[in-house]
């Protein structure tokens, strides 16, 4: 029995790695199908982000009376990273149910399906990078060598999102209440994640951002692009999250993988 269960994990991981091409192709063709017959295609997303950043930058900039050359780039990177985080988490709860036809037609790694969702979110993220480029053309002041750390940050965030999707996916497949619950929680979570503000501005209540893991996932992408090397705390939390998160996810996958086809059936 133990042997068979160890076998599950190696099958899951090799099944995801060896068929990553399929996950990417499905993610890519899903994206194309969604924007079929529209003129801008996936760039509608970019357009939406541009409008969002423009609008928030205008109103928030006036309300907070801050330096635009700092505020606008920071806001842009925060918002597109937030879209990546919230998009992945929101869809994660129903990821296995939504891809059940993959499950019921062949033997497939559940991790591959989590990867499919991650790829789709990363494709959106990549499109949104256009907005960051535009913003940097206007406000180039903060672009520096630290930006070279950004890809590492994005990689680390993606690697963490993968376990978050997988873990949430398993629980969401078993308990159908999770999807609406997460949808309801994302809004308040947005308010305690420093997307629109700096933690310092909360004063004594800054602890709510400090205990929110999304804060660190945001910072590790944003700081390098704002010319700042992420703090030791940020790196430490990210590495801790990676280890604990993957540990828990692999344990859950190992014990529940066999049940999964029945949950989504």
């Amino acid at each position: 029995m133990t042997d068979a269960k160890n076998d599950i994990l190696s099958k899951e991981i090799s099944g995801a790695l060896s068929r990553a091409e399929l996950a990417f192709h499905l993610a890519w063709s899903d994206t194309r199908a969604r924007y079929r017959r529209s003129i801008l295609g996936p760039f509608w997303l970019v357009f939406g982000t541009l409008l969002g950043v423009g609008g928030l930058g205008f109103v928030w900039g006036a309300l907070l009376d801050v330096d635009r050359s700092v505020f606008i780039p920071s806001l842009t990177i925060s918002i597109i990273t937030w879209y990546l985080l919230s998009g992945s988490i929101t869809e994660a709860a129903s990821v296995f149910f939504n891809n059940r036809s993959l499950f019921l037609n062949m033997e497939v790694s559940s991790l591959l399906i989590s990867l499919l969702l991650l790829f789709r979110q990363l494709i959106n993220f990549a499109h949104n990078i256009v907005v960051v480029v535009i913003v940097y053309v206007v406000y180039p002041e903060h672009l520096g060598w630290a930006a070279l750390l950004a890809p590492i940050g994005i990689l680390l965030v993606s690697f963490n999102l993968l376990w978050i999707i997988q873990l949430t996916g398993y629980i969401g497949a078993r308990f159908r209440d999770l999807a609406p619950l997460i949808a309801a929680i994302m809004q308040p979570l947005f308010f305690i994640t420093p997307v629109l503000f700096r933690p310092e501005q909360l004063g004594a209540r800054a602890y709510v951002t400090a205990i929110n893991p999304l804060t660190y996932m945001l910072e590790i992408v944003r700081d390098p692009l704002m010319g700042k090397i992420p703090s030791i705390t940020t790196w430490a939390v990210m590495i801790g999250l990676t280890i604990i998160g993957w540990g828990a996810t692999l344990v859950l996958t190992k014990s529940k993988r066999r049940r999964l086809p029945y949950w989504v059936n």
């Binding site: 091409e21 192709h25 499905l26 063709s29 199908a33 969604r34 079929r36 036809s101």
Partner: peptide, 21 residues
């Protein structure tokens, strides 16, 4: 299995064939 009706026949051939392995 794997069919997406918004995509063309050609795109679906590739998608479905990859879907099946």
């Amino acid at each position: 299995a794997g069919l997406d009706t918004e995509l063309s026949g050609y795109e679906n051939i590739v998608r479905m064939a990859m879907f099946l392995g």
